[in-house]
């Protein structure tokens, strides 16, 4: 009698466990799919990866500069609000605030009270920015090539070779 009771109780527990488990995994799966779908919507399939070595505000500055130089953001465009960007990049709002302050100090953006932060319309400044960013990349590249033991002449040859292959 007692034995029988125990068995049925056990059965009930395992049934319950099974039921809970299946609801659980079902929900998780639905959730996964939904969030995977919405994720790409919000981020446009792109997400900023942080490099470890630099302060985050500088990395966000570079990220915005790149967008300005490549024309993804035009002169006069409004930047996202501090809160929007911090939520998008998953960083502290104070960090984004600092990014905007530093960009303002470099005269790349300006803030209009109550309106938001805007990219400067001066094409000369943007052109200079483009030049200086290009120079940074080239300098990096050359110093690394030199570390590998290449001379200028060889570097140029490699680049021309590469160009031919692309064509």
């Amino acid at each position: 009698m007692i034995f029988k009771k125990k068995v049925s109780l056990n059965l009930m527990i395992s049934m319950e466990a099974f039921f809970v488990f299946s609801i659980d995994t079902g929900c998780a799966l639905v959730y996964y799919i939904v969030s995977a779908l919405t994720y790409n919507d919000i981020h446009g399939g792109e997400k900023m990866e942080f490099d470890d070595k630099l302060p985050i505000y500088i990395q966000i500055m570079n990220y915005i500069k790149k967008k300005i130089v490549s024309g993804e953001i035009n002169g006069g465009d409004k930047l996202p609000s501090v809160r929007e960007l911090s939520s998008e990049l998953k960083v502290n709002p104070n960090t984004v605030q600092r990014t905007y302050q530093e960009l303002e100090r470099e005269n790349l953006v300006f803030t209009q009270r109550g309106m938001g932060t805007f990219v400067i319309e001066d094409t000369e400044i943007i052109k200079n920015l483009k030049k200086s960013m290009a120079l940074d990349i080239v300098n990096n590249f050359i110093s690394e090539m030199k570390e590998l033991g290449f001379e200028y002449k060889e570097i140029v040859e490699i680049i021309l070779d590469n160009k031919k292959k692309e064509e």
């Binding site: 959730y31 996964y32 969030s35 995977a36 994720y39 809160r83 911090s86 939520s87 998953k90 960083v91 502290n92 709002p93």
Partner: peptide, 17 residues
């Protein structure tokens, strides 16, 4: 990781000065 992102979002969006 997905829930993690969601939680981080909620923290950022609801934090105020």
């Amino acid at each position: 990781p997905v829930a993690r992102d969601k939680i981080l979002d909620a923290i950022i969006n609801n934090y105020n000065e």
